[in-house]
């Protein structure tokens, strides 16, 4: 089946999450082909998992002070700081049968595309179940997956250039979470493409696009007008709504 590669875009947090949902709906209705998307968060934002409590994970005062958006994802998983120039986020949205019923196997498959992209840049990395990729034992990519109404959606982030000070001033790090980790300082647990290779963000994007499309029939085309309109609606109705963001 032919895949669609959406053009790289940068949006605010609510729109980014709404686009993923709008595309998933369109794929579910048969109105859009399986889709690969790469995007940035402008301004920088924190996304939290579907089941997380905002107050446990995010320093809201620090976010407000630094102009960092906060959004609740529809997917589970943990809180992520998306620096506007420090990472590239991807989404893979496809009919569920294309990705298989085995959840862990599909995490491994899509993470394999990220690992291939990193390998093309000279970075050796490995899948760390459930949803991380490590390079030299440090996290360089994380992701989250959902399956709804017959549609598979996995989105994830690849760290390009980490601003540890900013990352850990907006994210609250729970000492309990570090209890079974070998490294005690959270900033020792992450690494980035730039620190490992010195290559540019454009190189990472090109490498990701190539690796994700490898072995697939893949053609670039934008969102349809209907998807854009639905994304605007979902952004307003769900992702900007404090009742959603602060639902737990």
């Amino acid at each position: 089946m032919r895949w669609r590669l959406l053009p790289f875009t940068g949006h605010r947090a609510s729109v980014n999450m709404a686009v993923d949902e709008a595309v998933a709906e369109a794929v579910g209705l048969g109105n859009a082909p399986p889709t690969i998307r790469f995007y940035a968060w402008r301004p920088s934002a924190v996304s939290i998992g579907r089941f997380q409590r905002v107050q446990d994970e995010v320093d809201l005062e620090a976010c407000a002070r630094m102009g960092v958006d906060v959004v609740r994802r529809r997917t589970g998983g943990g809180a992520v700081y998306h620096d506007s120039s420090g990472e590239i986020t991807y989404s893979v949205i496809a009919p569920e049968p294309m990705m298989g019923a085995d959840i862990l196997a599909s995490y491994r498959e899509v993470c394999g595309w990220v690992i291939a992209a990193l390998a093309d840049l000279g970075i050796a990395s490995e899948f760390a179940p459930i949803n991380d990729i490590l390079a030299g034992g440090r996290k360089i990519s994380g992701c989250a997956q959902t399956r709804r109404q017959g549609v598979f959606l996995q989105h994830g982030t690849v760290l390009y250039d980490v601003d540890s000070a900013k990352m850990f001033s907006v994210l609250k790090v729970d000492p309990v979470k570090l209890s079974d980790k070998a490294l005690s300082h959270p900033w020792d647990r992450v690494t980035s493409v730039r620190s490992l290779t010195g290559c540019g963000a454009g190189d990472l994007l090109a490498s990701l696009q190539a690796a994700f499309c490898r072995g697939k029939e893949c053609s670039g085309s934008p969102l349809t007008a209907a998807e854009s309109a639905r994304a605007s609606e979902l952004s307003r109705a769900r992702y900007e709504d404090p009742a959603w963001t602060f639902s737990r």
Binding site: R50, F51, T75, G76, N131, T146, R147, R248
Partner: peptide
Amino acid sequence: AEVSGDFFMHPEEAI
């Protein structure tokens, strides 16, 4: 009861 964390659940609404 409220159950929270960075786990996954499919479907999410089932929480």
